Structures are given as C-alpha cells and as structure tokens.
Amino acid sequence: MPVSRLRRPPCTLRAALLTAATALVCILTPIAVPASATATTPAPGGASADQVPGMDVSRHQGTVDWQGAWDNGARWAYVKATEGTDFQSPTFAEQFQGAYDVGMIRGAYHFARPDTSGGAEQAQNLVDHGGKWTDDGRTLPPALDIEYNPNGDDVCYGRSQSDMVAWIREFSDTVNELTGRHPAIYTTADWWTQCTGNDASFGSTNPLWIARYAASPGTLPAGWSDHTFWQYADSGTFPGDQNWFNGTQEELEALAKG
C-alpha cells in the first residue's frame, strides 16, 4: 500500500512548481505564514492581501497541534481521508474532529489512483469514509488530489489524456451525485497539461486547488480564470503543507455553506 501523497515529485518534475529563476535548483525555501488570519494579512510575494491561511495534513503528520495552528493563524484545513479504493487514513477521524474543535472550517480529500480502478469506485470510497458534505458552514467541499504518480515514472498512471479526463469527470460527477457538491481539484499546471492535455472543461464546476511552490500561483490550468486554494510550501508555520484561500474569511464561509 503506498504511503500516498507525493507532494514533492523528483527534481525533474518538481521544476514545474518553481519559478524560472529557481527551476534549476531542487531545494524549496518555504514561505512563512503570518500569525494573523485577517483579510488584510500580508501575503507571499505577488499574492493578494485578501487571503485566509490554511493547511492540509495526512497520516504523516500524526497527532496535530490544532490549537497551536489556530493560534498561529490557520482558519481552514483539508485532511486526507482516502486513497484508491481500499485505503482509509487511520488518523482522519482524529484530525478532522481536531480541526473542527478549534473552530476551523475543514474538508476531506482523496488521493487519486487512476491506475487501480475507475473514478466512481474511488469517489464512493471517499464519501463512505469522511467525504460527506453538510451545509453547516464548517465543511468544505470534498477534494480530489490528482497529481504525479508516486509509484513509478509513468506520471499519468498509464492513461491517455482523454482517458484521464474521463476518469476525473467520473469521480467528480459521482461525488456531486452523492454529496451535492463538485469536488475541488488539487493539481499542478504541469501535471494537468501533461496528463489531461490541459483540458478546460472543469473550470465552471470544480474549485481549483493549485500547487506551486513559488511566490505566486503562476499560470493556471485551462478553464480556470482564478484559483480557490493555493498550496505554496510543504512546510512552514503550520503542520503539513502551507496554503492560502483566495478570498476573505466571509468568502471562505460562503464556500463551505455552498
């Protein structure tokens, strides 16, 4: 069973996450997240000031100091729930509840394995094990983590571009049927271009969670005029990966409310 969540691909692939000035360097310098969580918080270079700090975690973070993250400014979190068709994170329930208990808005994400099954089966795994959505104002739409294959050189999991688009569509439609929300899509511009042919058909339905370890989100995949979430570093002030929500606290609450 893969340990999942290869956020940091090999240097040959990781260059796509870096600016041109640093593309030849395979060392990432995390961007510190300020403690304040107000809409006027100073943001990393090139980013808007109207952003809300957040984080994402998996079983690799173990027991998370949620109160410490809250005190340092985090106001939302995504927690890994599932992977493929048969993996459920053993720390999901504790982490998901811990984020809620300190006041965070939180959501569940699924690590995609298009090489092991169809999208509908994996969507069912997510919804059955933490990916349900409720309009309580504290639950983000589920998220699909679709990125570099952690188990080999075939970054597209053996699927053609058209097959990959169909797989993502099946996953997204199934989640929507089961929860009433289309999932956010976590990806990189490089992976999306390489493995979907830079398909533009998801921008009108699925929030974009872009990963780019740089001073700005950069050029987005086709179909999205803006991002909703931005993962900009794999370590920093909070446990796990460091993120911004692209909007105010009120807009974040509206997204959760649906």
Rank of each mutant, 00 (worst) to 15 (best):
S172F: 00
V155K: 11
S172R: 05
L208T: 01
K132T: 14
I168R: 06
W209E: 11
T193W: 02
M164D: 07
G130C: 07
R159I: 07
D163M: 13
N176E: 14
A123D: 08
D153R: 09
T205A: 04
R169V: 06
I168Q: 08
H129R: 03
W133T: 00
N125S: 08
L140Q: 03
T134W: 07
I168G: 00
G130E: 06
A200P: 09
P207W: 02
G137C: 09
E177P: 00
T193R: 12
P141M: 14
A143R: 04
Q161F: 01
T187R: 08
E177V: 06
T187Y: 07
I146Y: 02
P150F: 09
Y186V: 00
I210R: 05
I210E: 08
P141S: 12
R169K: 15
T179H: 01
G203E: 10
V165D: 06
G158H: 04
S160C: 12
Q122Y: 02
G130L: 06
Q161M: 04
L126D: 01
V175A: 08
G130H: 07
E177K: 12
V165I: 13
S162C: 05
T188M: 07
T174G: 04
Y157V: 12
T188D: 06
I185R: 02
G152F: 05
T139R: 14
D128Q: 14
V175H: 01
R169Q: 15
S204W: 05
R138W: 12
D145P: 11
E147P: 04
V175K: 03
D128T: 13
N125C: 10
D136E: 12
D173S: 12
P141F: 10
P141G: 13
S201L: 05
D190F: 06
N125E: 10
R159F: 10
Y186K: 04
N198D: 15
L178M: 10
V127K: 01
V165K: 05
L126I: 10
D163Q: 15
D190P: 00
D145M: 13
D199H: 14
W192G: 04
T174D: 02
G180C: 04
Q122L: 09
W133P: 01
C195W: 00
E121Q: 13
G197D: 14
A166G: 04
W209K: 11
N198A: 13
N198I: 10
M164C: 05
K132N: 13
D136K: 13
A200N: 15
N198S: 13
G158F: 06
A189Q: 11
G152I: 05
D135S: 15
G197Q: 12
T193G: 14
T196A: 07
D199Y: 15
I146R: 00
G203Q: 08
R138A: 15
L208F: 09
W209Q: 13
H182F: 15
G137V: 03
N206A: 12
E177H: 01
G180W: 04
R169N: 11
R181S: 01
F202E: 09
C156Y: 09
F202G: 10
E121Y: 01
T188R: 07
